[in-house]
Amino acid sequence: MKEFLLYKVVPLLILAIFIMTMKSGDFLKKSFTDEDDVMQYVELVNQSIDDGDWATADKNIKDTKDAFLIVQKRIQFSVEKSELNRMGAAIYRAIGYVDEQDAAGAKAELQEIRFTWDGLGK
C-alpha cells in the first residue's frame, strides 16, 4: 500500500499539479473580484467612447490596465511572455488614443485587446 502510494499516487499527483499549473491560464484570467474584470472595463471604455464621454473613458482604460496587472500575476505561469507583452502594449496604446480623444485609434486598440485576451491561456 505504501509502495503504491509512493510510486504511483504521489508521482501522478505531482504531474496533475504541474498540468494544472500549465493549463490554468484560461481559468485564472476570469474575474474573481470587481477590480480584475478586464473585459468589463474594455466594454465600459468602448461605451464611453460611443457616448463621447472621454473623461470616463480615460478612467475606465486606466482601470483596464490595473485589472490586467492583477490578472497577469495569476496567469504568468501558463501563458507566453509575448502574449502578455502584446496585451500590455495594446492597453498602453489605447490609453494614448483616449488621452488624445482619437476614437478610431482607441477602438482599433480595444479590438486588439479583445483578440489577444481571447487567445490568452488557450
Binding site: 508521482p11 499549473t21 500549465m22 504568468q76 502578455l84
Partner: peptide, 25 residues
Amino acid sequence: MNETIVVLVRSIIAFGTLLIFTRFL
C-alpha cells in the same frame, strides 16, 4: 511578468517531470 519567478516555477515543473518520466522509463 516576473521572469525570475516564472523561470523558477517552470524549472520545478521540468525537473519534477523529468525525474518522474525517467523513473518511469
